[in-house]
Structures are given as structure tokens and as C-alpha cells.
């Protein structure tokens, strides 16, 4: 088993939390893991990505070679497209459709969506809207994680445990809404993939 994952978003959108959840679950499953993060200057509202590699064998490189990633998990639609050179031809793109607009020349939204629809394998969902419906607007990243679960080959119970661990200090309510967010994303993706 080997999964090479590119996580993408804008500084401050919580991609490290997604990485941490998958990381906890992978370690619990006895897998090897390497995860490179972005710290420093680009966290100030810039584009950020993380390479997350999990495998039942030793992992050599901290970086995923171009054209080899199994999936791109993105909390922002334009950022999902930025890393297409990393994605393998059979790879999946799981992305939020809610744009994060902090630059004056953000592309036309319709044109952006048509680029995403062109992708062979994709799951696109408005995670912000779904998180809002759950009355937990800060859980959009966990909705996206949920939408990626059909592709991760990791037991959902282990991901639930990871969420309990990560949000333990924030209290039971936060844990519960994030678990709901995880399942909302998962259900969406399950429907999409079957269709």
C-alpha cells in the first residue's frame, strides 16, 4: 500500500490539520509516513502545499516526484489546479469549490470551474457551505478530508480517532461537529464516485 498525497491551499486554511489527521491514522495503522510542510514567509496568505506520503514500505524522498501523486486534496479550487504537474494520470483531485480571493487578479470563477470539470477524476464540493450547514464554519478542511476518504485506503474509524486526538483540547462539541463534517464529506464523495 502506498499513497502519495499533495495537500493544497492558502496559508491559514488548515491543510496542516488535514495532514495531521491522515498522519495520526496512518501511524495507528502501522504505516510509514513522510510529510513535508510549509512554514515561514509563504504562510502569510500565500499559496501553500504539503507532500504527504504513506506506505507499508520505507519511504525515501520527502518530496513526491512530478507525475506520481495519487491525489491532490485542496481546500481552494485554484490551488488544486496549481499542482496538476505533480498528479499521476490516474490520480484524483478532491477540491473545495469555494474560492479564497485575496489577490486582485483572481481568475474568473466560471472559467476556473470549467477547468476543474475537465479533470478526469475529480470530486468538487462547496465545503464551506457544508460546514456552515453544520454550524461549524471552521470545519471546511475536515469536510474536504472526508471527501478524500474513499481514496485513502485507511479505515474510517482510524480517521475518526485521529480527529478525536487532534481536537481533544477543544472539547466534545468541537470533536462532534468535526466528526459530522468528516462524514458529510465522505457521503458526498461516495455518491460522486458511484455516479
Amino acid at each position: 500500500m502506498k499513497k502519495d498525497i499533495i495537500l493544497a491551499g492558502v496559508g491559514g486554511q488548515g491543510i496542516i490539520t488535514i495532514a495531521a489527521a491522515i498522519g495520526f491514522a496512518a501511524i495507528e495503522a502501522g504505516l510509514h509516513l513522510k510529510q513535508s510542510e510549509v512554514h515561514g514567509m509563504s504562510q502569510r496568505g500565500g499559496e501553500v502545499s504539503s507532500h504527504l506520503r504513506i506506505s507499508d514500505k520505507e519511504i525515501a524522498s520527502d518530496l513526491i516526484p512530478f507525475g506520481k501523486a495519487d491525489m491532490i486534496i485542496s481546500v481552494e479550487p485554484m490551488e488544486a489546479l496549481r499542482y496538476l504537474p505533480n498528479l499521476s494520470p490516474e490520480g484524483w483531485v478532491i477540491t473545495n469549490t469555494k474560492p479564497f480571493i485575496n489577490i486582485p487578479n483572481y481568475p474568473d470563477y466560471e472559467a476556473l470551474m470549467s477547468e476543474i470539470k475537465k479533470l478526469h477524476h475529480h470530486v468538487a464540493l462547496d465545503a464551506d457551505e457544508m460546514a456552515h450547514e453544520l454550524k461549524s464554519p471552521r470545519s471546511a478542511n475536515i469536510v474536504i478530508l472526508g471527501a478524500a476518504t474513499p481514496f485513502l485506503d485507511i479505515d474510517i474509524l482510524k480517521l475518526e480517532n485521529a480527529i478525536r486526538t487532534i481536537f481533544r483540547s477543544k472539547g466534545d462539541n468541537v470533536i462532534e461537529t468535526n466528526l459530522k463534517a468528516l462524514h458529510a464529506g465522505k457521503e458526498f464523495a461516495d455518491r460522486e464516485v458511484v455516479a
Partner: peptide, 9 residues
């Protein structure tokens, strides 16, 4: 269509 998103204040 993808544009750069430099860090900002």
C-alpha cells in the same frame, strides 16, 4: 488561468 498568490500582509 492559474495566477500566482504571493505572500502578503
Amino acid at each position: 488561468i492559474v495566477t500566482t498568490r504571493p505572500p502578503s500582509l
